[in-house]
Design a binder for these strands. Structure first.
Lengths: 249, 249
DNA sequence: CGCTCAGTTGAAGCATTTCAATTCTTGTGG
DNA sequence: CCACAAGAATTGAAATGCTTCAACTGAGCG
């Protein structure tokens, strides 16, 4: 996985997201609008807390590059990762009012974020409905992810649970063009995975090993390969066909 | 709990939601817009499936009255309830594109829904940004609920988990004025609760009994009373102060 | 080259599930 | 108004999946 390929601020015309065919192309008007709203970029190294639960965030972010994750923690340290954040994701909107975050976001890799002032979000709705619609669509899409994960954590057993999450991440990353020779960068530890699926680290590890020995997946040195997605998805009792697609408008 | 207090279609001016002080009041323009979009009402008895996962829904709904719940099921019948649906909630938006639902919605009581054609949602964004903003805010609010529940299912132990969910529902229902003499209608079975928190029915039952004996809650004949919310919330390690509020706009 | 963090493994303990049976509620028809 | 059936709640006991503890191995880094 490359470190940021651009050394300083990116003009929206050259936004790396625009090159991904997962995202719809924008009209000149939309583009101009985004440019006007964009206040800058935030670059952080791995292991940085970008947003902290309980604090107020004056900015919303679009992820241009890198991996991060959203999570909540109980007072005694138990952590639940609610979702992973990949390029194209929008973060900061999922807060209660007044910009108080209901969860934290930490980076996993070096990350480039595009920043927008929260106070001006309203302008999007007022002047650029198509972008506002995208925003809502993004939120709805994220909700689909949360729903499926909730099903997983609540009702799947360890083996299904791990299998599901591997498939989920593998597909998501592949969809935005992060696969290289069928392998996808997994820039996180087994502990992160454990915290995402609500299992203990040890049991997650043992389950991973079992899946590996069955030849259903390989995850070494930060790269993951799933030779037969269909097979792993079936083990997870997960319907691969319900893939997310782009908005109607 | 009363059956629908209105026998036939409700004009938006008299919408029961408008009487709740949780919801912001609408301008004449907004009201007119909603009236134009509203295509009718859907009334269903308890135990009805309003939306089914995998099917296409041409309508979006606002809940005027009654309880329902969103859920997903695995092929072998294991069910995860992702959230309960109360008056003021919006359902149907949380679908993948093309209106294919990613989850189902069943009613718990008699329910009155206000219906909007999905195909015309775009008009809201185009012509009534403030309502579009509300829609997004609603989605973000729901995400907060999902996040907290995910934390619960994944990382809280049985006792905390049950305590959290009771508090959550009690507060949510109270907030929209459903509390009567400090008691709230809980029109669902212990099995529903079990499926919401990802525990077995038996263990949920035993945990409920324990909490009851501790005097932290009473739930009988479909009504729930929590004499000391703070105490129950503390047991759940849940911060009651992070209450949701209404949108900025 | 040694320190630290991530991954791995076995074994013991325990929370939760599953099984099975009984009681309590609620609604329905005689 | 009572008897009965069906659904919901309750309880004990056995089974098990997952967690915790503990120890070791391996990889990456200064």
């Amino acid at each position: 996985m490359s470190i940021s390929p651009f050394a300083y601020e990116v003009p929206c015309e050259a936004c790396p997201l625009r090159r991904m065919d997962t995202f719809r192309s924008l009209s000149d008007e939309e583009l101009g609008f985004i440019k006007k709203l964009k206040t800058g970029e935030l670059r952080s190294g791995p292991g940085t807390t970008v947003l902290r639960e309980g604090t107020q965030s004056d900015h919303l972010f679009t992820v241009l590059e890198g991996w991060a994750f959203r999570y909540k923690i109980l007072e005694d340290g138990r952590r639940q990762i609610t979702s992973f954040v990949l390029p194209g994701d929008f973060i900061g909107l999922q807060s209660s009012t007044e910009g108080i975050m209901d969860h934290s976001v930490d980076t996993l890799t070096s990350v480039a974020l595009c920043t927008f002032p929260r106070g001006r979000i309203w302008e999007i709705f007022k002047h650029c409905p198509s972008l506002a619609f995208d925003l809502t669509w993004l939120a709805a899409t994220h909700e689909v992810i949360l729903n499926e994960n909730l099903l997983s954590v609540g009702r799947r057993r360890a083996e299904e649970c791990v299998a599901y999450y591997i498939v989920h991440l593998y597909v998501r990353a592949s969809d935005i063009g992060l696969a290289v020779d069928g392998r996808v960068r997994f820039p996180f530890t087994q502990e992160h995975l454990a915290d995402a699926i609500g299992l203990s680290l040890v049991h997650t590890n043992k389950t991973l090993r079992r899946l590996s020995k069955l030849g259903l997946m390989e995850w070494e040195h930060g790269w993951c390969n799933v030779p037969n997605l269909q097979a792993l998805a079936e083990l997870a009792k997960y319907d691969l066909t319900q893939k997310r697609m782009r908005p109607l408008v």
